[in-house]
Amino acid sequence: MIKQLTALFVLITSVSLTASASDMKLVILGTGNPNADPDRSGPALAVVANGQPYLIDAGPGVVRRASAAGLEMPSLSMAFITHLHSDHTVGLSDLIFTPWVLEREKPINLFGPPGLAAMADHISKAYAVDVSMRLNGAEPANETGYKHITTEIAGGYVFTDQNIQVEAIQIDHGSFDAAFGYKFTAGDKTIVISGDTGPSDTLEKAAMGADILAHEVYSAETFKTRPPVWQNYHSQFHTSTHELAAIANRVKPKLLVLYHQLYWGATDEDLIKEIRAAGYNGPVVSAADLDVFAVPSEPNAK
């Protein structure tokens, strides 16, 4: 099924992700948060360019969601981590090992804040018995696909290949010394991922005029029902619907995608209504797991 969203974007479900080498797509693998919602896997996204997926975060369920989205297991070889909260990283062991079991031969490349290398190393040590059994036992396994290459970053341009350029954007989240959003550029197309953050001048600057801005959000209305200790936390380190409306009015993305939503009893429709009521009238959608947003090759494609 294909549903037209704007003159520039379509929301795609149940369709190949590699239909055209020039396509750039945002694949929503998980929109969840620490709440154990069975309909929403943990936070994870993929930008797909020239058929190659570049993952952002590794929340619980990431590999099975990638499979459901039609991403090939051997292609899951590149991931960019926004920060080290558990809901964004507990899928790392799955991402490191499951695609290897399913014939990925390349080591996985991980990019993220300081502490990521130690996390990945500890995961590898935890599964040493499994790795030894697969390498030395009766079942066939290659000798490279279980390995990881981890690059700890400090912001700026962190990766470039023939498909895409990736910029890490320093943001503030909780008491972390380092947390990042990411900007993916392929030719004249850009997709910006906020990660977990409150309103951020650096993120706004990077996202100006982006084709897609995928941004975390919480309901400003149901926030009022939260205990004061949580109101204090979320108001400092996350972004309300009212704040996001102001951000989007300044950034003017061609499409605003809400993800990592905190509802507290609100619905997707409520989030959109709150953003509209706060004065943003541009294209916006509240994403569900396995939504795919394609940027057409032609700027004025229908």
Score class of each variant (00 low, 15 high):
23 D>L: 05
46 A>W: 01
249 N>W: 11
128 A>S: 15
110 L>N: 07
241 T>V: 11
200 S>H: 05
91 G>T: 03
234 H>I: 14
251 V>P: 05
240 S>I: 05
259 Y>Q: 05
201 D>L: 12
108 I>F: 07
81 I>E: 03
293 F>V: 07
52 Q>T: 14
240 S>G: 14
92 L>E: 01
210 A>W: 00
20 S>D: 15
7 A>K: 05
95 L>Y: 00
145 G>T: 11
169 I>A: 03
233 Y>R: 07
143 E>L: 11
265 G>R: 12
35 N>Q: 13
260 H>N: 12
212 I>P: 00
26 L>A: 03
26 L>N: 01
212 I>H: 01
154 A>D: 14
170 Q>H: 09
80 F>Q: 02
76 L>A: 13
9 F>Q: 01
67 S>N: 12
137 G>E: 13
18 T>G: 02
282 G>Q: 07
293 F>I: 11
62 V>D: 00
201 D>C: 05
230 W>L: 14
216 E>Q: 13
174 G>P: 04
276 R>W: 08
290 L>V: 08
200 S>E: 08
204 E>L: 11
54 Y>W: 09
292 V>H: 04
224 K>N: 06
267 T>G: 11
175 S>K: 09
170 Q>D: 13
92 L>Q: 01
134 R>S: 08
207 A>C: 02
108 I>M: 11
223 F>N: 03
174 G>Q: 06
158 V>M: 10
189 K>S: 08
224 K>W: 03
204 E>I: 06
211 D>Q: 04
187 G>W: 10
197 T>K: 04
289 D>K: 03
95 L>P: 01
286 S>I: 05
31 T>K: 01
101 V>F: 13
256 L>M: 12
16 S>R: 12
21 A>W: 08
58 A>E: 06
30 G>S: 10
119 M>I: 08
33 N>H: 07
125 K>F: 13
43 P>L: 08
301 A>T: 10
161 D>W: 11
25 K>L: 04
65 R>D: 04
33 N>C: 04
105 E>L: 10
95 L>I: 00
45 L>F: 07
149 I>C: 12
252 K>R: 15
175 S>R: 06
96 I>G: 01
4 Q>W: 05
65 R>Y: 01
233 Y>C: 02
101 V>R: 08
96 I>L: 11
76 L>W: 05
87 D>N: 12
144 T>F: 12
180 F>H: 04
213 L>P: 00
206 A>R: 07
196 D>W: 04
71 L>I: 15
7 A>F: 05
299 P>N: 05
235 S>D: 10
81 I>S: 07
99 P>Y: 02
172 D>Y: 02
272 I>H: 02
256 L>H: 11
189 K>C: 02
120 A>I: 09
58 A>Y: 03
180 F>N: 03
231 Q>F: 06
147 K>A: 15
280 Y>W: 11
83 H>R: 02
283 P>G: 06
241 T>Q: 10
278 A>W: 06
34 P>Y: 13
294 A>F: 00
300 N>E: 10
59 G>A: 04
249 N>R: 15
79 A>P: 03
114 P>A: 13
117 A>T: 14
200 S>D: 10
234 H>P: 00
153 I>W: 03
283 P>T: 10
96 I>F: 05
277 A>H: 13
215 H>S: 14
227 P>V: 12
104 R>V: 07
85 H>E: 13
